[in-house]
C-alpha cells in the first residue's frame, strides 16, 4: 500500500483493519464499530477502515434518521480525520452492485500534517482484488 508512511505511527504499531459490511440503523453494528474506531484512535496503531458489501451505506450522503427515532451518526465519519483515522477503503464492486457511485458518498477529508495541512480525501475507492490484498496485509482484523 502506498500510504503507509503517512500516519507517523511508531514502528511497533500494528496494522488494524476495521471491516464494515453492514448498513447502519437496521442493526447496531455500524455504530458500535465506529465507537471502537474512535476509542482505538488513542492507541496510535496504524488504523484502516474497509467498507464493503452493505457497509458502503454507512458513509452515503443525505442520511436522515429523524422519522425512525434513531440518532444520525454519519457526521462522525467526517470527524475521523481529527482522530488521525485517514485511510478509508471503499470497494468499487460493492458500490456498483448497489447502484451507487463515489458521488453518493459523503466527503470525508483529513488535513495532512506532512503536506502543510493540505486537505485531502480520506476515501480511497479500491477494487475487490485490492480489498483482498489490503486484508492480507493486516496484523489484526476487527469485523462486526
Amino acid at each position: 500500500m502506498a500510504m503507509d508512511e503517512a500516519g507517523g505511527a511508531p514502528g511497533a504499531a500494528k496494522k488494524f483493519l476495521y471491516v464494515n459490511r453492514k448498513a447502519p440503523y437496521g442493526t447496531i453494528y455500524a455504530l458500535e464499530s465506529l465507537e471502537v474506531v474512535l476509542i482505538g484512535a488513542a492507541f496510535e496503531q496504524d488504523v484502516q477502515l474497509a467498507f464493503l458489501d452493505d457497509g458502503v451505506y454507512q458513509i452515503v450522503k443525505n442520511q436522515s434518521t429523524d422519522a425512525i427515532g434513531a440518532k444520525n451518526f454519519s457526521p462522525t465519519y467526517k470527524a475521523l480525520g481529527d482522530y488521525e483515522v485517514t485511510k478509508l477503503y471503499v470497494e468499487a464492486e460493492a458500490l456498483e452492485e448497489r447502484g451507487l457511485t463515489a458521488d453518493d458518498l459523503m466527503e470525508i477529508t483529513f488535513e495532512d500534517e506532512d503536506d502543510d495541512w493540505a486537505e485531502k480525501p480520506s476515501i480511497n475507492i479500491v477494487s475487490r482484488a485490492d480489498m483482498a490484498k489490503i486484508m492480507s496485509e493486516q496484523d489484526v482484523i476487527l469485523s462486526f
Binding site: 471491516v19 459490511r21 486484508m135 493486516q138 496484523d139 489484526v140 482484523i141 469485523s143 462486526f144
Partner: peptide, 8 residues
C-alpha cells in the same frame, strides 16, 4: 495463519 477475518 497470520490473521483471522470473521465474515459475520
Amino acid at each position: 495463519c497470520d490473521r483471522t477475518q470473521s465474515w459475520l
